[in-house]
Amino acid sequence: MALSLYSVNAILILAKDDASRILAKYYDAPHKPSGTKDRSYPGANPYPTVEGQKNFEKKLHEQTASQADKCDIILYDNRLVVFKQCQDVICYVVGDASENEILLYSVVLALRDSLFQVLKTPPDKRTIFEHFDMVALAVDEIVDDGIILETDPRAIAARVSPPPVADFSAKNIDLSEQGLVNGWKFARSFIGKSLAQQFG
């Protein structure tokens, strides 16, 4: 198979107990090679329909749920799949059978570790649903259109996490009428003293 930037076919987060879909992103190369009639070109989404995706996810879960704590790589449906269990969810990264398994493994580790840093706790179903926006952003920071962009969990978490809140805030400022009058008196007094020192 020709070398391609489009290394990842899908990133999945499924519930460990019933294979329900928590997050599923399937990637398709944005530019189909000319003269290609089937979906065998590099980066093609092998499961273009939702029905095909859910069928793949269910059967993949059956193959991996019982061995998620023993191994973390399989060849299934002519796809190389690496996975990691976290609490009550399993994170999967799916690539072509000829893809480099170490490269895909670095992606699944980046996903798991960045979610741990972003969520401040080991990722579980409830926490992922509560912070789904940040989880989806983390996935987008790792892979875009099947191209691996980043595998450093700290860099991913830094881009996804909300910026730190400044120490000062307006909550201690009195915006009532009396507060504004007091502020005006203070400013007038301060300006008066400054002018007296300069010209006095």
Rank of each mutant, 00 (worst) to 15 (best):
Q117N: 11
D38Y: 01
D96E: 14
Q117F: 06
P48L: 03
G192S: 11
V165T: 15
L137S: 13
N172S: 14
I90D: 07
K59N: 14
Q67F: 05
G35F: 09
V107I: 03
E177K: 14
R21K: 13
S194T: 12
F56T: 05
L115S: 10
P48N: 06
V118H: 09
A44H: 07
D167K: 09
L80N: 05
I22F: 01
A10K: 03
I128L: 12
R126P: 00
S66K: 14
K70V: 11
I73R: 15
D96W: 01
L60D: 06
D77F: 06
I148P: 00
A19R: 04
D88F: 02
I90P: 07
D96G: 12
P122A: 05
K16Q: 14
F129L: 11
T151N: 13
T36L: 04
F56E: 02
I22C: 02
R188L: 14
K58L: 12
V135D: 07
Y27N: 09
S194Y: 11
D69L: 13
A65P: 01
G146K: 04
A24E: 13
S40M: 07
K58I: 03
K193P: 00
V50G: 00
N182G: 04
V50F: 03
H61E: 01
P164W: 02
S66L: 12
S176P: 07
V107G: 04
Q117Y: 05
A24Y: 03
S161R: 12
F168R: 10
Y6W: 05
D167H: 06
I142H: 01
P46L: 06
Y27L: 05
I142D: 01
V165A: 14
S194W: 09
Q63I: 08
A2Y: 03
N9D: 09
A29E: 02
